[in-house]
Computed example of a mutant assay.
Amino acid sequence: MAHWYDIGPNFEDRIRQTPLTMAPLSNYGVQEQRDLAAGGPMVFAVTGVSDHQAGQAMVVETRSQVTEAASERDISSVRLVEAYWAPQGQSIGIPARPDIAGAPELVFTPDLSGCSVVVEKKGDRTLRVSHVQGGHHNEEFASLHIEPRDITAILSHENYSNGRNDQAAAFLKFDRGSGEWNIHWQERQGTIHVRGAQVRAAMGPMECAGYYCKPAGQPDQTAIAVREALASDRAEHRDSRFRFTRSQSPEEHRELPSMDAAISTDSRPPWQRSRAPNPRDSFFSRFQRRDSSDSERSR
């Protein structure tokens, strides 16, 4: 039988040893499903579970999930955490300085299995966080209107693939000391499904395979390479991580309103075209997974 206990806001202290998983939307009948689908600030709880089959794990859930299961789990009280929720296949805006705005200082997003987390800087006050689904990078860069010139950080499948199981948990946390957001991610083997007090190991027991962190508000090597490719006159840019193909149009880049951008498909870069380009002609080809892109959604 699974043993449950409260962890609270200091879950980050255990991230190097204990697997982390995001349970929202994995359980049916949750009151906040509509809010989760829309994205934005919400209230969560982080609890720990110990099970002979699933092993040790930390579970991020909505308040109603924990409240409904509290009696079954024999937990008298839990400490709540306010955080933004970045839905799969969508984008949300967060303040660049939440300590000034009095906003949440955490961003949770569904578990990753081939997906990417993309951060854009929109002026001095706002960051935009997108959860791009694995196997759909070309389409979603276009549908989410992600602008490569604004990208400051990308957490891609290549960052967390550990060679055994391409699973990860990721979150953003604001560091008051540096005044910057950081992307934290945990390479993980195995997955679990939570329903009430019951835990089922789908590919478990879960194991932590590594933990990493990098700044989200300042351009990293991947973002800089994308910018260099856009600024270059060369048709192709290559480095050790991806291949990038420029638009061959002689027309100079200009800012277009969304309607014009949607209609004009011939002169726009690949990620802004209404139809996705051939993956072999895009630097996203390295992000594609061998298995089904729907596996994450079905978990």
Rank of each mutant, 00 (worst) to 15 (best):
M1P: 09
H3L: 10
W4M: 09
Y5M: 10
D6Q: 08
G8P: 07
P9R: 00
N10R: 04
N10C: 02
N10T: 08
I15S: 07
L20V: 07
P24K: 04
Y28F: 13
G29K: 06
G29A: 09
E32Q: 12
Q33V: 14
D35I: 08
A37P: 06
G39H: 00
G40F: 07
G40P: 08
M42C: 09
M42G: 15
V43C: 08
T47N: 05
T47P: 00
T47F: 02
T47Y: 01
G48F: 04
D51V: 05
Q53L: 08
G55K: 06
Q56R: 10
A57S: 09
V59F: 01
S64Y: 00
V66D: 02
S71H: 11
D74L: 13
I75T: 03
S76C: 10
R79I: 12
L80V: 14
E82M: 11
Y84V: 12
Q88G: 08
Q88P: 03
I92G: 04
A96F: 02
R97I: 14
I100P: 11
A101W: 10
P104M: 09
V107E: 01
T109D: 01
P110E: 06
G114P: 04
V119R: 02
K121F: 06
K121E: 10
D124A: 13
R128G: 00
V129H: 00
V132R: 02
H136G: 05
E140V: 05
H145C: 12
I146D: 00
I146W: 01
E147V: 13
D150T: 11
D150G: 03
I151F: 03
A153S: 15
L155I: 12
L155D: 04
S156L: 07
Y160Q: 05
S161Q: 08
N162L: 07
N165A: 14
N165W: 14
Q167M: 11
A170Q: 02
K173V: 07
D175I: 04
R176C: 09
G177A: 10
S178I: 05
G179C: 01
I183F: 03
W185Y: 15
Q186K: 08
Q186P: 07
H193A: 09
H193S: 06
R195M: 07
A197P: 01
A197W: 00
A202P: 02
M206A: 06
A209Y: 12
G210K: 03
Y212P: 06
C213E: 15
K214P: 09
P219G: 06
T222E: 09
V226P: 00
E228V: 14
L230C: 07
S232E: 07
A235Y: 01
D239W: 07
R243Y: 10
S249R: 01
H253A: 13
L256H: 03
L256Y: 03
P257Y: 08
S258E: 11
M259A: 15
I263G: 12
T265A: 13
P270M: 13
P270Y: 13
W271T: 14
S274T: 12
S274R: 13
S274M: 14
P277L: 15
D281Y: 06
D281E: 11
D281Q: 12
D281R: 13
S285P: 00
R286I: 11
F287P: 02
R290D: 09
R290Q: 06
S293L: 01
S293P: 04
D294M: 06
R297D: 04
R299P: 00
